[in-house]
Simulated assay, not measured.
Amino acid sequence: MRRSHLHDSLDDAREAAEETAQTARLNTANALLNDRLRTLQAARPTSEADAEPDWYAQAAAQVRDLIRPAPPEHAASVRRSSTLADQPTGGSGAEVGA
């Protein structure tokens, strides 16, 4: 309401203040709920279901291990043959076959 000069009328200022207050109430309730849920999650005893392996996470870890580049001592060198190296490529800017 202190910034009522930013609105066309006093009713518009009150409406803006109510919307801001509602947003603040919602944000506060959300923060309190999240805090309470974190507290409950931390206090929850570990069950056998939590101890079971997560098959999706294990499969994802295997895929990540396959994607990682090989260490330098296991890396393979791939070289182009001299006949292929002499041929122009399409991306060099030169017109091929024109």
Results as ranks from 00 to 15, higher is better:
Met1Arg: 14
Arg2Gln: 13
Arg2Lys: 15
Arg3Thr: 15
Arg3Ala: 15
Ser4Leu: 06
Leu6Pro: 00
His7Gln: 09
His7Leu: 05
Asp8Ala: 15
Ser9Gln: 00
Leu10Glu: 13
Leu10Arg: 14
Leu10Ser: 10
Ala13Asn: 02
Ala13Leu: 03
Arg14Gln: 11
Glu15Leu: 12
Glu15Asp: 13
Glu19Met: 11
Thr20Phe: 07
Gln22Cys: 10
Gln22Tyr: 06
Thr23Gln: 14
Ala24Pro: 00
Ala29His: 05
Asn30Tyr: 10
Ala31Leu: 12
Leu32Phe: 02
Leu33Glu: 08
Asp35His: 12
Asp35Trp: 12
Asp35Lys: 15
Arg36Pro: 00
Leu37Lys: 14
Arg38Gly: 02
Arg38Phe: 02
Thr39Gly: 06
Gln41His: 13
Gln41Glu: 07
Gln41Arg: 13
Gln41Lys: 13
Ala42Trp: 00
Ala43Thr: 03
Arg44Pro: 04
Pro45Lys: 09
Thr46Ser: 12
Ser47Gly: 12
Ser47Val: 09
Glu48Gln: 07
Ala49Lys: 10
Ala49Val: 09
Asp50Ile: 03
Ala51His: 07
Glu52Val: 03
Asp54His: 01
Asp54Ile: 01
Tyr56His: 07
Tyr56Phe: 13
Ala57Cys: 04
Ala57Ser: 11
Ala57His: 04
Gln58Met: 12
Gln58Glu: 15
Gln58Ile: 12
Ala60Arg: 06
Gln62Cys: 12
Gln62His: 08
Val63Leu: 05
Val63Asn: 09
Val63Pro: 00
Val63Met: 05
Arg64Cys: 03
Arg64Val: 05
Arg64His: 02
Asp65Pro: 00
Leu66Trp: 10
Leu66Ser: 09
Ile67Glu: 12
Ile67Ala: 10
Arg68Met: 12
Arg68Glu: 15
Pro69Val: 10
Pro71Gly: 09
Pro71Ser: 07
Pro71Asp: 04
Pro71Arg: 02
His74Asn: 14
His74Gly: 01
Ser81Trp: 02
Ser81Met: 05
Thr83Gly: 00
Leu84Phe: 04
Leu84Trp: 06
Asp86Val: 04
Gln87Ile: 04
Gln87Gly: 01
Pro88Ala: 02
Gly90Val: 15
Gly91Gln: 06
Gly93Ser: 04
Gly93Asp: 00
Gly93Met: 02
Ala94Arg: 09
Ala94His: 05
Glu95Arg: 11
Glu95Thr: 14
Gly97Ala: 10
